[in-house]
C-alpha cells in the first residue's frame, strides 16, 4: 500500500449488544431469560473508506448513523466485528471536555498525564508542557486544580493537548466549537497549519459552516453505510435535502 494513504478501511462491520434492562449486574447474568432482551445492533455494515495523507474529511449523518463508532474504531478503542483497518502514522483523538482529567490535579499535571496517554514519552510530554499551556492560554492557572476550571478552560486545555502530541492523524468528534470566538479562530488556524504540514484530519460535525470551511471531502453515513461521498457542498446539500 502506498504511504500516500493515511487511513484505509476495508469492509468494516461492527455490531453491538444493546441492553434494554439498564445497568449490567450479576442479576442480569443469572436471570438467563434477560438474555432475550439483549438485541444485536448493527452499527456499521460494510464500510470501505480511504483517506489520503493531508486530506481533511468530514463525516456527516444523523444520530446513530455510525460516525462516532467509526472514529472509535480508528482510535483502536473498539475492535471491528469484521474487516480491516490500516493506519499509517500516529493517531490522536481530541478528548471532549477533558475526559481523563482528574479534578484534584493541577492543569499542568493533567496536561502532562494526558499527553502521555495520547502516546508521548515522559520526556516529550515534559518538553511540550509550555506550548500546551500557552496555546490554551492557561499559564496563569497551571497550578490550580482543574476542578476550579470553567468548562471553556477545560475544553481549551483538551484541544491544546491533542494539538501538541505531533499526531499525523487527528480525530475530532464535534469538539471544534470550544471556548470563545477568539479561541475558535485559533483552533481553525491550527487546523489550517496542520493541513499545510500534510496532516490528516477526520472529523464529525453537525455544523454546516465548519464542514465547508475545513474539509476537502465529505462523507455522508446512513445506517452504517456510505450514502454519498465527494465535494463537501454537493454532499451537504444532498444530505440536508435528504433528511429534511
Amino acid at each position: 500500500m502506498s504511504t500516500e494513504i493515511a487511513i484505509h478501511i476495508q469492509d468494516i462491520h461492527k455490531e453491538f449488544l444493546l441492553s434494554h434492562s439498564g445497568s449490567a449486574s450479576l442479576k442480569t447474568a443469572l436471570l438467563w431469560w434477560k438474555r432475550r432482551q439483549l438485541e444485536e445492533l448493527k452499527v456499521l455494515r460494510g464500510l470501505t473508506i480511504e483517506v489520503k495523507r493531508g486530506e481533511c474529511v468530514a463525516l456527516v449523518g444523523r444520530n446513530g448513523a455510525g460516525k462516532s463508532t467509526l472514529l472509535s474504531l480508528l482510535a483502536r478503542v473498539y475492535k471491528p466485528t469484521s474487516g480491516t483497518i490500516t493506519i499509517n502514522g500516529r493517531i490522536a483523538p481530541l478528548l471532549e471536555l477533558g475526559a481523563g482529567f482528574h479534578p484534584d490535579l493541577t492543569g499542568q499535571e493533567n496536561a502532562l498525564f494526558n499527553a502521555m496517554i495520547l502516546g508521548l514519552s515522559r520526556k516529550e510530554a515534559t518538553a511540550r508542557i509550555e506550548p500546551i499551556l500557552a496555546f490554551a492560554e492557561l499559564e496563569k492557572y497551571r497550578d490550580a486544580p482543574v476542578r476550579t476550571y470553567s468548562s471553556g478552560m477545560l475544553a481549551r486545555l483538551g484541544f491544546s493537548i491533542a494539538a501538541h502530541v505531533d499526531a499525523d492523524i487527528l480525530i475530532v468528534d464535534e469538539v471544534l466549537a470550544v471556548g470563545d470566538f477568539a479561541f475558535e479562530r485559533k483552533c481553525f488556524a491550527f487546523i489550517e497549519e496542520f493541513k499545510q504540514k500534510n496532516g490528516t484530519i477526520l472529523f464529525v460535525s453537525h455544523d454546516r459552516e465548519d464542514v465547508l470551511q475545513v474539509s476537502d471531502r465529505c462523507i455522508w453515513l446512513k445506517d452504517g453505510q456510505v450514502e454519498q461521498e465527494g465535494d463537501p457542498l454537493t454532499v451537504l446539500d444532498a444530505y440536508e435535502s435528504g433528511t429534511a
Binding site: S72, A75, R76, V77, P93, L95, E96, A99, G100, I117, L118
Partner: peptide, 9 residues
C-alpha cells in the same frame, strides 16, 4: 477510567 478508555487506546 471508563470515560478515557472509551476515547483512547
Amino acid at each position: 477510567s471508563l470515560p478515557v478508555v472509551k476515547k483512547v487506546y
